[in-house]
Nucleic acid binder design. Sequence first.
DNA 1: AGATCCATCTCGCCG
DNA 2: CGGCGAGGTGGATCT
Lengths: 290, 290
Amino acid sequence: MTATTLHRPTHRDALYLLEEAFGDGRMVTLFGRCTVDYDGRATSSLGPGDRLVVCKPDGTILVHTDEKRKPVNWQPPGCTHRASVRDGHLRVRSERSTPTERLDVAFERIDQVTAYEVTDRSDLRLQGSEEDLRRRILDDPALVEEGFVPQATERETAAGPVDVFGEDAAGRPVVVELKRRRVGPSAAGQLQRYVEAVDEEFPDEGVRGVLVAPSVTDRARELLAERGLSFVAVEPVADEGDDESGDGDSVAKAEGDGGDDGADAGRDDGPDAGDDAADESDDAADDTAE
Amino acid sequence: MTATTLHRPTHRDALYLLEEAFGDGRMVTLFGRCTVDYDGRATSSLGPGDRLVVCKPDGTILVHTDEKRKPVNWQPPGCTHRASVRDGHLRVRSERSTPTERLDVAFERIDQVTAYEVTDRSDLRLQGSEEDLRRRILDDPALVEEGFVPQATERETAAGPVDVFGEDAAGRPVVVELKRRRVGPSAAGQLQRYVEAVDEEFPDEGVRGVLVAPSVTDRARELLAERGLSFVAVEPVADEGDDESGDGDSVAKAEGDGGDDGADAGRDDGPDAGDDAADESDDAADDTAE
DNA sequence: AGATCCATCTCGCCG
DNA sequence: CGGCGAGGTGGATCT
């Protein structure tokens, strides 16, 4: 009984299933021809068409067409779903407050309704996030530059929290902003805001700013240069070739350069050694489609 | 025949349906107990659980749990779906290149598979976007300030395209950055970048910057003040009460203030007249569920 | 393909 | 609840 399905149901029969499913916390999918109207942070209307509608027990609703990753219309978790039959349409309404938002789906034809029993307790483990990059930096601060000493993460400033705060070999304060992927102008601006804020805390100490990311766009590099900020290329996860055992002095892409007079404009963009052909799946499968 | 469903199918039967559906461009939903592994821009793995998987004919794949608006795992449009049966699992693999990414879903149990015929050709009409705000400003430049004369939209600068570029009553260049909703520090930084870029084009002309949005956070307001930039409160869509006919001098929230010596620190945050009780739906419906 | 920016961004965290 | 920033952001647009 984990999935209950009605094919081409009457609106009334579909309504009954929706009542039950909304009541006991099941997930619901509807497929059929419908229109969608939304009013809230913005306003939208969508003419008739065939769509897949998903109602989750946490109050989420999604309206998907046959294209794109994002739903054409939706409502976030925490909304209240209601269904009704009126004017010959099965209507699903989802509402919330703060902000006040309403989504209305009106089906003129329902091809299928299904209610699912869902029990999912398994957390996603993800690698390659900014936090992984931070761990990498803390594990081997020389990746930022020789002699860098981290002192705090998420250090609060007037402009917001700094990813990694520390000192360089000369004892100057260093603000490090981390990005898990190639950075553009906004990251440069963000780093600048942090450096300015810290600079007011430590006047005349020559606060430095370092953007750490896999790579940087040209314009962002210019912005950094204009503002006397540096860039260092580091991947969020260590390449396979790298020696990542305890005593890591072989990781030294950034070395030498005693950094004597502030703000060197950053080592160059890494060569990005690219994808090694590690296709570990021998596709001698039983059956294969498309 | 718009929806073909198999209940608790064998993996092999499910595979046949997937083959057909992938072949003739139908949308597919699968529900069952599965694990998910991803490798690409990052890497992730998800242990076994009941999930709803949606495969779109454009190459999108979505893995949804019973919570949240976003899929736990996904693959964007343009990917290639393949299905197979191996080691007692129904496997769905979705791949693409640039960047190289692979998603694997392995079902140990399939409760339901459905293939849908989808024909959707109806465009979403949405109001309240930044573009609406821009039209509003161009329609009535006095919303920015008395005497403002727009000269270009999306005007290119060394720092990127400026939303609205023009002149104030004194002939000084004005950079306007538009935001459809309340702005934080990043918008202030963005405006600053543009102003600096334009300032290099027009040295000694006292280029001004105006951030136009419904409201602003405290920190962003400080940043604007530090940089000599202004803020003007404007909603992306006109309030119902407003007179939006041709001769608009009733809209004048921003008036007077000849702006003689640059950079007034912005009129205050609008009062946000809030939601009027325009509940046009009398809910004397036939049937209503939860 | 890359760069830039908007988005009903969503999401989590923290005050 | 609002502010703030990350995200496998997605998506559009332009070069």
